[in-house]
Design a protein around this nucleic acid. Structure first.
Length: 334
DNA sequence: CTTTCGCCCTGAGTGC
DNA sequence: TGCACTCAGGGCGAAA
């Protein structure tokens, strides 16, 4: 279920601990979690062991960790994935699929545990390709040309102390690292997300005009715009008063602009709340914990009154998932 | 080419 | 109490 805000909470939590951390060991407990790792790239464990992670980067729901070898460790949480930072020796449950042992020059030794109940997520070592527009491939934390400032900073003693241990913002005099304007090959087809400063609003609107499909399908199409999942799609559509099946080509410029604004708003709000629910006690970088379920207006609210007009929220089956909407506020227009 | 469908996967929840 | 069944949905390959 993690969407952009939840994945960003994970990224931000991992960033201090993995930046400049040496991978001293790799254990794969379930090969199915390597389904996105191309065997031709080489043995997963061998490729990683002895390598150093340089940063934590995110585009949409994809996470990757550029390596000193020039490759990148790509991580997708799927539906139920978590990346947990643990003290070595900590017991984990049976859903542990992959473990990296890492050694940070300041913070010491840690385990990076990839836990995934349903195995929709994965890890893979992949090559980095330059971005066509030479802009940053994704968001990798605050700093010049590294992306946009996050809504909140992760709290927690480890995170706070680690910030001082990581490299500072890139200054204009410094040369950008090679991994900055690059993206893993398996993420190259994924569009930039709506919070990416390099996201092209006009190109997005133009694509909506060209498409022959419903607006929610388009919102969930990660090659068009990334980071949006079922929950925030429903929330943004409700906020913009648009029906999920409204044909994209029929959206007025005004509606399309409003929708993009509401998408950004709902993601930003979730990001802020996810940041505040950051669990600092054991630096649990937990994709599920960041959800702001108390703030949901329509998702999972079927049978309850619409917060805007009081009409009962309806849930319809759509694309093998649920679509939640207000039948009065959100009607298909022509 | 574009668009849609069906599969992957398993713990939690439900009904009998 | 136990068991069969349904549900959740991100991404991708196949089908239409």
């Amino acid at each position: 279920m993690p969407e952009l805000p939840e994945v960003e909470v994970v990224r931000a939590g991992l960033e201090p601990a993995v930046t400049i951390a040496l991978i001293t060991g790799v254990e794969v407990f379930d090969q199915r979690s390597l389904k996105r790792h191309a065997p031709a790239a080489g043995d997963f464990e061998t490729l990683l062991t002895g390598d150093r992670m340089l940063a934590a980067v995110r585009r949409g729901k994809f996470l990757w960790f550029p390596l000193s070898s020039g490759a990148a460790l790509v991580t997708h949480l799927g539906m139920s994935g978590q990346v947990l930072l643990r003290e070595p020796g900590t017991a984990e449950n049976g859903l542990l699929r992959i473990r990296l042992s890492i050694e940070h020059p300041r913070l010491g030794e840690y385990w990076v545990n990839f836990v995934d109940q349903r195995i929709f997520g994965s890890m893979a070592v992949d090559t980095l390709l330059p971005t066509p527009d030479a802009r940053a491939g994704g968001y990798s934390g605050p700093g010049l040309e590294r992306g946009w400032p996050p809504a909140t900073q992760p709290a927690g003693a480890l995170a706070a102390s680690a910030l001082a241990a990581t490299a500072g913002p890139i200054t204009a005099q410094e040369e950008a690292p090679a991994w900055l304007a690059a993206v893993p090959s398996q993420v190259a087809h994924i569009a930039r997300d709506p919070l990416d400063p390099a996201f092209d609003d006009r190109a997005f609107f133009a694509a909506l005009k060209r498409k022959n499909t419903g607006i929610k399908r388009a919102m969930l199409d990660q090659t068009l715009v990334s980071g949006i999942g079922n929950i925030y799609a429903d929330e943004a559509l409700w906020a913009a008063k648009i029906h999920y099946a409204q044909p994209t080509a029929s959206l007025s410029p005004r509606s399309a602009r409003l929708l993009l604004t509401e998408i950004r708003l709902v993601l930003t709000k979730a990001l802020a709340e996810g940041g505040t629910s950051f669990d600092a006690t054991y630096v649990n970088v937990n994709g599920a914990s960041g959800y702001f379920s108390h703030s949901l207006n329509v998702y999972g609210q079927q049978g309850k009154p619409c917060p805007r007009c009081g009409t009962l929220i309806v849930r319809e089956s759509f694309m093998n998932r649920g679509s939640h909407f207000c039948p009065k506020c959100q009607r298909v227009r022509n």
